[in-house]
Structures are given as structure tokens and as C-alpha cells.
């Protein structure tokens, strides 16, 4: 279990994450939602140990994250950050092969290459294997990075050992069909004891695939529960400052969020206020 106990993150005098508690069990799929600047990425970086909270603790399976050896951690936890750039012309295959770093010393074995290639097939990028990574499109890069993450956790997933997958908007540049294919794939991983924490912007993807939804607002935990519990018009409308209708999905019996904000109109008030301030 990955657990955040009462964590607070401050940078300068600004509180980015405010006393958040969160538990992530192997086998569950948790979506983290919230407005821009709500603290989603900061929370994720705290959970990965990249940012140290000024108070509170992050524990994995009862041990403080900072007390776990980097290599041990890398074998059971993989992280996908937003738009990973690569300044040099590695091939897509070489990038995915880097996911095998915690498992082999020196040079990758034949097995590593086989695993890397099958992970590329899972995210639908095996045909791009010999392409230079910097020349790929945004969506292709995301799928290659996802393949790298899967290659990193491959051993744990095979053995159904508990492992953790933390993803920061992994699908933001993908088309609809790829979004659903990959969500479906990640959803299936939870059956093999994988815990998934995913930052998302698409509420309907969260409603359709996640077991649990966490909504952040101004760095605080605003709502936590199953999609059915959390997706209520007044709650979502308030969390996102955007009026919504919630319907039922005609096929999957999950909530379906429709925004009812500002069709064909400009944003009210803000513009006038700025104009007034200038005057």
C-alpha cells in the first residue's frame, strides 16, 4: 500500500498541498482530478519522493519512502511524468529498453529486448521501434513512455506482486481511440495486483475506468469516493468552478459529465474587473 499521511507541501509561502491523506491499495485504480493549479502534480511528485513535504509522511508498505533503496523502489514502482523530452536521438526501442535499467546490469539481455518489444506492442508502438524518439509526435511519445513504464514493472506484473504505477496525464495527447484502448489496458493491470494512480483531465474517462476518484481543490482533498459517489453536479461544479449536468452513460452505466458553461459567450466579470483595474 502507498500511503500519504497528512502531507503538506509549501514552496516559498505558498501552500501547494494542504494536509492530504491518501491510500492507494494494490489492485485499485485511483483517478486524481482537479482544476489547473489544484496541486495534482505536486501531490504526485510528493508520492514519488521527488518533493519532500514540510510535514507528514509518505510510506510504501509501511516503510518511509526515503528509507527504501532506489533500486528496490524502481522494481516495484514506476512513474510517468508529463511530456518527457529527450535531447538526443535514441530510437523508440532504446527508450523503452531503458525501462529495464533496474533489472539488468551493463547490457540488456535477450529477455529484456523481448519484454521491451512486447510492451511496445501493448501500447501500439511496436512499428515505431527503430524511429528516432525526438521525431515522434506527442501522442506517439506518450505511448512510448508508457511502454517504458510497463517494461519497468513487467517482472512484478508477471508474478502478480504488488506494484505501483503513478501517471501524470499519460493520455493528454492521445486520440479518443488510443485513450480508451490504453485505459482499458491499464484497468486490466489492476487485476494483476497493480495499484494505479492517474492524474486526468477528462472526467468521463475517470468515471468510466476508475474505482476511486480523488478531487483536489486549492491543495486540499475536496472529495474522495467511487465515481458514483463523487460525480454529483453541485460537487463537480464547485470543484471545477464550472456548472455541469450529470447523466448516465447509455452503455456502461457510469456517470457522464456534460459541461453547461458559457456556450458561445465570453467569460463574465473577469474582463470587466481587469478593465476597471486598468482605469
Amino acid at each position: 500500500m502507498l500511503e500519504a499521511r497528512d502531507i503538506t507541501v509549501q514552496i516559498g509561502d505558498k501552500t501547494l498541498v494542504d494536509r492530504v491523506n491518501l491510500k492507494l491499495e494494490p489492485g485499485s485504480f485511483c483517478a486524481v482530478l482537479g482544476k489547473n493549479g489544484a496541486g495534482k502534480s505536486t501531490l504526485l511528485k510528493t508520492l514519488t519522493g521527488d518533493i519532500h513535504p514540510i510535514s507528514g509522511q509518505v510510506c510504501m508498505e509501511g516503510t518511509l519512502l526515503s528509507h527504501i533503496k532506489p533500486l528496490t523502489l524502481a522494481r516495484k514502482r514506476a512513474v510517468m511524468m508529463q511530456n518527457t523530452q529527450l535531447p538526443f536521438a535514441f530510437t523508440a526501442f532504446e527508450v523503452v529498453l531503458m525501462g529495464r535499467t533496474p533489472h539488468t546490469r551493463g547490457f540488456e539481455t535477450h529477455d529484456d529486448r523481448r519484454i521491451a518489444m512486447s510492451c511496445m506492442a501493448e501500447t501500439g508502438v511496436d512499428h515505431l521501434a527503430s524511429r528516432s524518439y525526438p521525431t515522434l509526435s506527442g501522442g506517439e511519445k506518450q505511448r512510448v513512455q508508457l511502454a517504458r513504464i510497463l517494461a519497468q514493472l513487467h517482472d512484478a506484473i508477471e508474478n502478480a506482486d504488488p506494484c505501483y504505477l503513478l501517471l501524470d496525464e499519460p493520455l493528454s495527447s492521445l486520440d479518443m481511440s488510443h485513450q480508451h484502448t490504453l485505459m482499458h489496458h491499464i484497468r486490466r493491470l489492476t487485476q494483476r495486483n497493480v495499484a494505479v494512480l492517474m492524474i486526468l483531465h477528462d472526467l468521463n474517462l475517470a468515471a468510466q475506468y476508475a474505482d476511486e476518484v480523488t478531487i483536489l481543490k486549492d491543495g486540499r482533498l475536496y472529495a474522495l469516493g467511487t465515481p458514483d459517489e463523487v460525480f454529483r453536479p453541485e460537487l463537480i461544479g464547485d470543484a471545477f468552478d464550472c456548472p455541469v449536468h450529470i447523466l448516465r452513460h447509455p452503455e456502461f452505466d457510469c456517470p457522464l459529465v456534460i459541461s453547461t458553461a458559457l456556450h458561445g459567450k465570453t467569460m463574465p466579470s473577469t474582463g470587466n474587473r481587469v478593465a476597471a483595474a486598468v482605469r
Binding site: D50, T72, A74, R75, V79, M81, L86, M98, T101, G106
Partner: peptide, 20 residues
């Protein structure tokens, strides 16, 4: 060399791959 390869992905990414 291997650590340097992963650092090309970014320092955080290298850390997540178990590199000190």
C-alpha cells in the same frame, strides 16, 4: 554510462529508474 543514458530522460525519470 547507463546512469547517464537515463539522465537524458530527465533527472526525476532517472531517479524513478533506480539511479542515484
Amino acid at each position: 554510462s547507463r546512469g547517464l543514458n537515463t539522465i537524458l530522460l530527465g533527472e526525476a525519470e532517472a531517479r524513478h529508474l533506480g539511479v542515484r
